[in-house]
Amino acid sequence: MTAPSPAPATTDTLLSVRDLTVEFGTKGQTPFRAVDGVSFDVRPGQTVGLVGESGCGKSVTSLAIMGLLPKRGNKVAGSATFDGTDLLTLDDREMRDRRGRDVAMIFQDPLSSLNPVVSIGVQVAEVLQRHRGMKKSAAMAESRDLLDKVGIPDPSRRLKEYPHQLSGGMRQRALIAMALACKPRLLIADEPTTALDVTIQAQILNLLKELVVDSGTALIMITHDLGVVAGLCDEVNVLYGGRIVETAPRHELFASPRHPYTNGLLGSIPRLDGARNEQLAAIPGSVADNIPWTSGCAFAPRCSRAIDVCRAETPSLEQDSVAIEDHLLRCHNPWPTGGEA
C-alpha cells in the first residue's frame, strides 16, 4: 500500500517531492486524505504538469509545498526537498523568507488575487522591497520594468492604476510580474488561465513559457486542461483521488495514454472535427464517488475497464512494462499501447 520508492533524486533536481501526504480532519474523526503519497521531481528549467479533475489534490499539493496550508486542521507528511532543504520542515519565518524569493506561486483568479485598494505598482514594489531590500523609488522603477517585461502596455500609467481598472489578462500579467519579481527558481502556477478568455489564455501561456525558458525557472503547472499540458509541459503527472495514477513525459503520455483515467480526460475534450450528432464523451460519475485507495483502485467505480482485481487489490505505481521511456502507471488493467480505439 505504500507508494513504490521512486528513483533517488538526481543531483540536478531542484525540487524533489517524496511521499507527500496531506490529511484534513479534526481530532476523533477519520481524517480525509487529500494527497496520498505523491512523489515527483522538478529540474531547473523544466515544466512539470499536475493534471486532474477538481478535488484530486492538485492545489493542496502546491499549497503544502508552499507552506500555505492553514496551521490547524491538517497533517502534512513526506518531504519536499528544494535545493537540499526540506521545505516542509522549515519554520514559519524561514519559509516566509523563501516564498516570493526562491519559490513563487500564481493563482487561478487574477482579480481576487490582487489587493483591490492598493495600486498595481505598490503591489509589485512590495515584493521587491520585501526580498531585495530596495527603496521605494527604486522598487517602483523596477516594477515599471517588470510590467513592461510581462507585456503590459503603457506600464508607467498602469503602475498607478488599481486592479479593477485592468482587464483580466493584464491582471494575470501583473500577478506574474509580482511572482517573478525576485527571479524565483521555482514557480507554481495553479490553473493560471482558468478564469481568462481563450485568446488571453494562449497569451498568458506563451508568456509563461517565454519567461521560463529565458530565466531557467522551473515551473509546476497545475491544470485540468490537457491543452495547456500539451502546449507547455515536459513531464506530466496525472492525479486521481490524491494519488498519482500515471507519470510520463508529455509525448509519451499523449502518444500512448495507458491509464483509463488519462484516456477519459483525453477523450472528454470536445472536437471540432467530430460528427455533430456525436455525444460528448464524459467520464461517468464524479470524484465524489471515490472509494478510498485502501480497498482497491479508487477509480474502479467510474472505470470502463475495471475488472475484479481492481476492486480487490490496490494497484501500485510501477514502470509500464511495454513503454520504452520512463512511464509510471497505477493500474491493473491499462489500455493496450495505442490507447482507446
Binding site: 516566509r96 516564498r99 513563487a104 481576487s112 488575487s113 512590495e126 520585501r130
Partner: peptide, 11 residues
C-alpha cells in the same frame, strides 16, 4: 485570495 497571494510572496 489576495491575502493568500500576498502570503505566497512572503509578505
Amino acid at each position: 485570495d489576495h491575502v493568500l497571494a500576498a502570503r505566497a510572496l512572503g509578505v
